Simulated assay, not measured.
Amino acid sequence: MTDTSGPGVKGDVVSLKATEVAAFKKLYQDRYHPIVNRLMFALRASVHDSEDAVQFAFVQAYRRWSQIENPEPWVVTVATRAYLAKCKRDRRRMEIEKRALVAGMLNPHGKTGRELDDVDGYAWVQAVISDLPPRQRQVMAGIADGLSNEEIAGLLGITQDNFRSNLRFARRRLEKRLDLKKMIPAPASETGKGGTS
C-alpha cells in the first residue's frame, strides 16, 4: 500500500529537504537502540519484535517527517502501537489454531502435538523471564529468540564480559525459581547408585 497523502510524497518515494534528512538521520542514529531497549523493558518485548516495531515507526516517521513536531515521542508511540497490534494478532492466531486443533481440523502449519505444546511452553518461558531484572531479561530474551552472544551484546551495547555476567546471573535466578533439579529426572547411571547389585 502506498502513501500518497501529504506534500512531497509521490507513491513510495518521499522527497525531504537536506536539513530534514539530516535531522531524521541524527534521530535514527542517536535514538534507535535506546527506543528498542525502552520497548524491550517497558513492554517485555523480544529484541526481534522491538526492532521490527521501531523500524516500522521510523519508516512511518520518514514518510511524515515534515508533519511531525516531536519526532522521538511520535516514534515511540507508533512503535508501541505496532508492537501491541502484533501481539493482538499473534494471540488471535494462536486461539484460532488451538480451536482448529481441538475441533479436529487439519493443522495448516503441519505442527505436531509436541510443537503445539512448545507454543505454550514458550509463553511460559517468557512469563518466567519477565521476572528478571531488565538487563538480564533482555539477555535471556535474545537467547530465547535464537540470537548469538555477539549479536545480543551488540544490540544491547554491552561488552562480552558484561553479557556473560548478566547471562550467568540470569541463569542462577532461573535455576532457583524453577528448581530445575526437581524438574529434570536424574540420568539412569545416577539412580542406580547405592542400590543392590
Rank of each mutant, 00 (worst) to 15 (best):
T2L: 14
D3P: 02
S5Y: 06
G6W: 05
G6I: 04
V9S: 10
G11F: 01
G11T: 03
D12I: 07
L16H: 01
K17F: 13
K17N: 11
T19Y: 09
A22F: 05
A23K: 04
A23I: 01
K26M: 07
L27E: 09
Y32R: 03
I35G: 00
R38W: 14
L43H: 06
L43M: 07
H48E: 06
H48M: 05
E51Q: 15
E51A: 12
F56P: 03
F56R: 08
V59R: 14
V59Y: 13
Y62Q: 12
R63N: 03
R63D: 00
R64P: 05
Q67N: 14
P71R: 15
V76D: 07
K86H: 12
R89P: 03
R92A: 09
E95P: 06
E97G: 15
K98N: 13
R99M: 15
T112R: 11
D120S: 06
Y122T: 02
Q126H: 10
A127L: 11
S130Y: 12
G142I: 03
G142W: 03
G146V: 07
S148L: 09
S148V: 04
N149P: 00
L156M: 01
Q160F: 09
F163Q: 04
N166T: 07
R173S: 12
E175M: 12
R177S: 04
L178Q: 05
G195W: 02
S197P: 08
S197V: 11
